[in-house]
Design a binder for these strands. Structure first.
Lengths: 333, 333
DNA sequence: TCCGCTCCTGAAAACGTTTACTTTGGAAAC
DNA sequence: GTTTCCAAAGTAAACGTTTTCAGGAGCGGA
């Protein structure tokens, strides 16, 4: 591949002059400039980003570490981050940690080595981000937080979301509400469970630990947790699933058992999806402003990249309960 | 951030020796090696990927340009590519062209400038990839092809998929089958329409151009195309939608019109999704081996990166018709 | 004692840019 | 005609690695 030297010698000028033309420095006058542009065209020359990065000691790339590329929630997040990056002429280095601590660790190492300008991270483990933060790389956590890490974050008010959903079920008359929960090792799992428990306590209902089943964040985790709940005797009359894919899995378990929603069992999902409305009945769900979460995280990152000294900030966005047909009063008896 | 020089001077050795330790060169003996490792630890030194890239004139990154990050089909593709990249210790630079030619062009420029080791591209426009290919950057097209571009590709047998779906409808007795089609400027749109037409011709049915409505690849495109079809008099008795999001949009249009599936109208979607089976009735669909497509594309890319001289290859994978409850014989009259 | 060999380490070049500083040449001012 | 000044273009250093080549220490054998 042609380098700036080739262009310079072919055009009969010095590399400095070529560089000036590339960077639109107006000090290069027309005869030289025209000749250089022609030569560039002729050689199909493209300046090496590698060398530019080297020279400038910076890269116009931001890292994005998510935990499940196949989850539409994170996909919307990616979309938002991409949009903001594009506006700022940055590109996105995408890493899928797959809820795997080792993978997360490795990717964060990569981001650090490659000297990305900043990173947006959905943290899976407790300490993975620490090295980045210590190396003064701008970092924004999104969706989840980790305790004791001083970094910007954008998250949902998970407690409020789970509280509202559970309260809705209680108000409909449910007393045995199953939770298809997520691992409490991540903040999302912890907080949504806390919201559920808070609503039960607020209504003076007893917490029955058997009504809480934990699964991984995927379809399969929801399926298994829901199956366990459906085996209970007496069966819960309602289920709250704490993320979108787990909701899908829970619905599958319910449909396998030939139970009807909401007649036999009410269901609330977390994180509304377009197709929730198409199900029969359409699913009641806690909607997150997902795209907005992503946008804010990205903007926060760019703000931090511009000003390392600005105060650390955690933004908490509000969920909204969308009541549709999958929740109703429990059957008598 | 500390550099190799800092480590060298602090440990009282030359940069060469430090570099050797970093690269596990066994020629460095223990007193020096131990001192260097300690110093590295102490300074929190991390070798600069930027400088390494500069020196090696290469980057362990592959570019991935997709047209819609929010479409689960592409997401699965990303996942597959990521998995293969991870195995090979490469990372993925993700670009979302958003079906926008300008964005695609820009991203391909970025990939070229950044000297990525290779690229996997879902081409939106006709010529965007050409510069990359001309610059001898290994490129694999996926999902779509562009005519006259000599590059590896992995695609679905779209004609066969649409043919099978349409034939299934014809065999059920449908004679007026609407196509919720995609722009024929991209191969996927063209070929799926061709499969549809081929099936009609094979059964000696007349092609009615009013039964073909084209929309963009998203939910909204499917919604609008389906609405147009549902306005026809007489209404089609069946609809084939040519991608997953368009199927979602078509279902919304049908549900708005209060038509029942399959009693009033049969529906087939393209590209099966987990939630298709949860709809009432569960959707009949043409399933693509999406993950496999991504894996093959990535493997092909790595093969090409290793051997630029290997013959150019186009792999065509087979779809499968999954018959569920959304297709039935048309109502009498 | 000296040569030659091995083994470890150091010096320096190279990768492709950008940019501060220097040189050149021509025109204006005297 | 000489000096001065300015614009335009060139020279070279720097960014942080890796790697080639060279140097030197240690040691065994003659």
């Amino acid at each position: 591949m042609a380098s700036i030297k080739d262009v310079a010698s072919k055009a009969g000028v010095s590399v400095a002059t070529v560089s000036r033309v590339l960077n639109n420095n107006p000090r290069v006058k027309s005869p030289a400039r025209a000749r250089i542009l022609a030569t560039i065209d002729q050689l199909g020359y493209q300046p090496s980003g590698i060398a530019r990065n080297m020279r400038s000691q910076s890269v116009r790339v931001i890292g994005l570490v998510i935990s499940d590329i196949q989850n539409p929630f994170f996909t919307t997040l990616v979309r938002a981050v991409e949009d903001v990056a594009y506006e700022n002429q940055y590109t996105v280095l995408l890493c899928n940690s797959d809820e795997d601590l080792q993978k997360e660790q490795l990717y964060i190492d990569v981001l650090s080595r490659e000297r990305v300008a900043g990173a947006i991270i959905v943290p899976t483990g407790k300490d993975a981000c620490t090295p980045l933060v210590n190396a003064r790389v701008p970092v924004v956590m999104v969706d989840r937080t980790v305790p004791d890490l001083v970094a910007d974050a954008v998250v949902l008010d998970n407690v409020a979301g789970a509280f509202a959903a559970t309260k809705h079920l209680i108000e409909l008359g449910h007393r045995r509400i199953g939770l298809v929960g997520a691992p409490t090792s991540v903040s999302v799992g912890r907080e949504r469970q806390r919201g559920y428990e808070k609503a039960l306590r607020a209504s003076k209902l007893k917490l029955d630990p058997r009504l809480i089943c934990i699964g991984n964040f995927k379809e399969q985790g929801g399926y298994q947790a829901a199956r366990a709940l459906l085996e209970l005797d007496p069966r819960p009359t309602a289920i709250l699933a704490v993320n979108n894919l787990m909701t899908l899995g829970a619905c599958q378990a319910i449909s396998e058992k030939r139970l009807r929603i909401p007649k036999d069992i009410s269901v609330i999902g977390f994180d509304d999806m377009p197709w929730f409305a198409l199900l029969t009945p359409p699913l009641t769900a806690v909607r997150q402003p997902t795209y907005e979460i992503g946008i804010q995280a990205a903007r926060l990152l760019f703000a931090r990249m511009q000003d390392a000294a600005r105060p650390v900030e955690t933004r908490v966005l509000k969920p909204e309960l969308i009541v549709r047909g999958s929740t109703a009063a429990p059957a008598r008896g």
